[in-house]
Amino acid sequence: MFIGIDIGSRTAKGILFDGKKIIATAICDTGIFPRRSGESLFQELIEKAGLAQKDIKKTVGTGYGRVSLTLADKTITELSCHAKGAHFSCPSARTVIDIGGQDSKVIRIDQSGSMKDFTMNDKCAAGTGRFFEIAASALEMDMETFCDIRPVSEPFCQISNMCAVFAETEIISLLAKEISVESIAAGINLTFSKRICAMAKRIGISNDVLFVGGVAKNSAVKNALARALDIQFHPFEIDPQLMGALGASIFASEL
């Protein structure tokens, strides 16, 4: 049995893998002690499957907190892990777009699942999950309510600022003009999608494209992004947030 643990900036994810398929999954908040969250995920996974620690042959850690994972046999960046997980979930995948809480990445992979190129934004909140959190709070909503808004399709308002801080001010002034929340939400999605689109086009997009990471759960964003890129995202089975951990567990099985 093999374990992959992905310690992201916001959430930590773990997967138990038997070499062929996923046996158990676990998710928790990263909190302020990434090492501890990694260890508790590990425990949770083996308990779920009724295993003991000795049954785990190898463990691979990934994500921002990977260096703090003392229990890992090896650490591998989340970029390679996403490529690996995506290839496993969908062998025809050639592009992976990952949007997490604090960063976003576009990864190009070849037919064997190896990463060929990538581009990454982790220097500014625009283009990351953080952008939505700021937008949601400007609309005085929590993320879940925000994700549930049904954005209008056309015509939507424009949010011209890419910068999360300025976008917040802009949203507040749109609210003051009594523009509907649905319309603003559509504007936010569109702005965001354009940003990701520019990033993705830098390294080129080829089918099939997988959309992973926490933000991929927001179907309104997913649709807006698909429209902006003029593509359709390829469906896959697992929770999009787990792709990195899945890749890590597959790497563990290959160690």
């Binding site: 990463m115 060929k116 990454m120």
Partner: peptide, 16 residues
């Protein structure tokens, strides 16, 4: 200030 951001890119690059 961006040492960790550089590190992840460089590590991922070396994994290629």
């Amino acid at each position: 200030s961006d040492t960790e951001q550089l590190r992840i890119r460089i590590e991922a690059f070396l994994e290629m």
